[in-house]
C-alpha cells in the first residue's frame, strides 16, 4: 500500500536540529544585551534577531512539520495567517507613528 504521508528519516531531523541549535547560539551571540553591547547594530538588531528566528521557524515548518512535502492548500492556509499578521502590524503602524496629536503629553509618540 502506498504510504499515507511523506516519510522523513530521523537523520534529517537531527541535522535540522543541529542547525537550529547553531542558529540559536548565533542569535544569542549577536544580541547586544548578551555581548555587553560589543555587538550592536542599533536599530537593525531587532531585524537580525527576527530574521534568524524566521529561518529557524522555516526549518521547523519545512522539515519537522513536513510543510516542504505537503500539497499547495496547506501552504496557502499557512501563508494566509502570516499575511494577516503582517497586515495587522502594518495597520497599527500606519496609525500610531503618524498621528498628529494636539496634546503631546498624552499620546504615545
Amino acid at each position: 500500500m502506498a504510504e499515507l504521508g511523506h516519510v522523513i528519516h530521523p537523520r534529517v531531523f537531527w541535522k535540522v536540529f543541529a542547525v537550529l541549535v547553531f542558529l540559536t547560539i548565533i542569535t544569542v551571540i549577536l544580541s547586544p544585551r548578551v555581548s555587553g553591547h560589543i555587538v550592536d547594530f542599533g536599530k537593525v538588531n531587532i531585524l537580525i534577531a527576527l530574521s534568524i528566528a524566521t529561518i529557524k521557524a522555516s526549518l521547523v515548518l519545512m522539515y519537522f512539520m513536513h510543510l516542504k512535502f505537503e500539497g499547495p492548500w496547506i501552504l496557502v492556509y499557512f501563508i494566509l495567517p502570516v499575511s494577516l499578521l503582517i497586515l495587522m502590524i502594518a495597520g497599527v503602524f500606519i496609525d500610531n507613528p503618524l498621528r498628529i496629536d494636539p496634546s503631546p503629553e498624552v499620546n504615545l509618540s
Binding site: 542569535t27 528566528a53 521547523v60
Partner: peptide
Amino acid sequence: LYWHLVDLIWIFLFPLLYLID
C-alpha cells in the same frame, strides 16, 4: 503538529522578549 507550533511560537518569543536591546 500541535507540539511543533508550541515550539514555533517560542522561537519568536525568545528573541523578542529576552534578547532585544
